[in-house]
Design a protein around this nucleic acid. Structure first.
Length: 297
DNA sequence: CATCCGTGGTG
DNA sequence: TCACCAAGGAT
């Protein structure tokens, strides 16, 4: 019978989480045995800050249209931005395209399997590099995303939410919990993430359905309330992000170039509209094709 | 290390 | 209703 001072034994966590995953894992396209590394990579880009439900249809259309990195690399960047649709953060589409170009030119069109090669690609940070290496190639890596961090914060550290930024102690903890055997480590990585996504959710966690509830330090401590710094909600109404989104929607939905008047109709504040347009052009999400005419690149 | 970068679902 | 949140990365 565990006391509050005990750390959950790694072996207990492994068995419980892996058994739970075997039973409850979602059947997602990028997890199927026939899924290519490119499919995994596309999913990871799309899933950066966007929920699975909204990624599914876009991912399917994307892989059908561009089955390999070279297929995407051969297209203008604007086609990637248009196909990205309303997933949000369209710079991710640009980075995915740039990554496809780099893979085509520097890796013979094959998605790299090493963390070092992956993290050198545009739009690939620590999480995405580890995720692709682990999920697509079965390599042993610490995959630290928001779900995994939350599960470990609760089950091991006994707090409701992890710190704002990844700490050294947190990474050491995750490293220590990573199973030794390579294939097991890869399954563990996706299993812990799935547990965080489906059971150990940010709000209203389903502890009654959790395979490690009996050793979870946060639950054993009586679910103490979060006492860290307030996590600031992102402002939205009236921000440049909203303005940029409106402008991009106009361009996306138009087959050809749009006149400045069409953009003006999408956002009233002329000063802010101009600032955002300049920013979009600077980001290479928009190109000016005439005196008062704009288009996707 | 804090801030910026989209969008839509939900309790 | 509206604050919160969803598989981050770049600067």
């Amino acid at each position: 019978m565990p006391s509050l001072d005990d750390q959950p034994a790694a072996s207990d966590l492994h068995h419980a989480v892996l058994a739970w995953y075997d039973m409850h894992a979602r059947d997602l396209p990028w997890r199927r045995p026939e899924a290519s590394a490119w499919s995994v990579m596309v999913s990871e880009f799309m899933l950066q800050q966007t929920p699975v439900a909204r990624v599914l249809p876009v991912h399917e259309a994307w892989l059908e249209r561009w089955p390999t990195p070279a297929d995407l690399a051969a297209e203008p960047t604007g086609e990637a931005v248009r196909a990205w649709g309303r997933l949000g953060y369209p710079r991710r589409a640009l980075r995915l395209h740039a990554a496809a170009v780099a893979i085509t030119e520097q890796h013979d069109g094959v998605v790299p399997d090493s963390y070092d090669d992956l993290i050198a690609l545009p739009g690939v940070g620590d999480y995405t590099a580890a995720a692709i290496a682990s999920f697509a190639y079965g390599r042993r890596h610490v995959v630290l995303d928001t779900n995994v961090r939350r599960v470990f914060a609760r089950a091991v550290a006994g707090v409701e939410f992890p710190a704002t930024a990844v700490t050294r102690a947190e990474r050491d903890l995750a490293t220590g919990l990573l199973p030794d055997e390579e294939a097991t480590a890869a399954t563990w990585a996706v299993a812990v993430m799935e547990l965080g996504a489906l059971v150990c959710t940010a709000s209203s966690p389903r502890c009654g359905a959790c395979p490690i509830a009996d050793v979870c330090r946060w639950r054993l401590a009586g679910h103490p309330a979060y006492d860290g710094p307030p996590r600031k909600a992102q402002a939205w109404a009236g921000t440049d992000r909203q303005c940029r989104g409106r402008l991009m929607a106009v361009l996306r939905e138009s087959e050809g170039p749009v006149h400045a008047s069409a953009l003006a109709a999408a956002w009233d504040d002329a000063v802010q509209r101009e600032r955002c347009l300049v920013g979009l052009i600077d980001d290479a999400l928009v190109v000016r094709v005439g005196p008062e005419s704009y288009a996707l690149p």
